[in-house]
Computed example of a mutant assay.
Amino acid sequence: MRTSQTPPCPRCAAPVLLTARYPHAWRNRSGKRVAGFKETVLCRSCDVSDPAAGELLALLSDDGPLTPAAFEAFSGLVRDWLDAVRDRAPNRAELDAQEARWRAGEL
């Protein structure tokens, strides 16, 4: 997990609050398991209406270092957020828009 030197949001290009990278696997056409990693970003703009991100966004929106109590809550909030977003299927329209930005050299 990174909270500094994070890439821009792939959805809106704004700076993100954190990037989480975690193991991810799927089955290919032949049924063979393919293991890899998946990366998810938490964006102050794009995730504001996501109930899974609400408390984490609120915690990270405060300027300055986390207090000891906030730091203790941080890991649980990240875990809850990742549990919610880990298995979400991509939005096809957003995926197509991201591909268009990539092909245009914007990513």
Rank of each mutant, 00 (worst) to 15 (best):
M1H: 12
R2V: 08
T3F: 14
T3C: 12
T3W: 13
S4D: 14
S4M: 13
S4E: 14
Q5V: 09
P7F: 04
P8V: 10
P8K: 05
C9F: 09
P10G: 07
P10W: 05
P10E: 00
C12M: 05
C12R: 03
A13F: 10
A14M: 08
A14R: 13
P15H: 07
V16Q: 09
L18P: 02
W26A: 01
R27T: 13
R29K: 14
R29V: 15
R29F: 13
S30E: 06
S30L: 03
K32H: 02
G36I: 04
G36T: 04
F37D: 11
K38Q: 14
E39R: 00
T40D: 15
C43A: 08
C43W: 01
S45N: 05
S45R: 07
C46R: 09
D47K: 00
D47Q: 06
P51W: 07
A52P: 09
L56V: 05
L57Q: 10
L59M: 02
L59W: 06
S61G: 11
D62H: 00
D63K: 05
G64V: 00
G64H: 05
L66H: 11
P68D: 01
P68S: 00
A69K: 15
A69I: 11
A70E: 05
F71T: 15
A73M: 09
G76M: 04
V78G: 00
W81L: 03
W81S: 12
V85Y: 00
R86N: 12
R88D: 03
R88K: 08
A89L: 07
P90S: 02
E94K: 04
L95Q: 07
L95M: 08
A97S: 09
A100M: 04
W102I: 01
R103W: 06
A104I: 04
A104H: 10
A104D: 12
E106T: 00
E106P: 05
E106M: 06
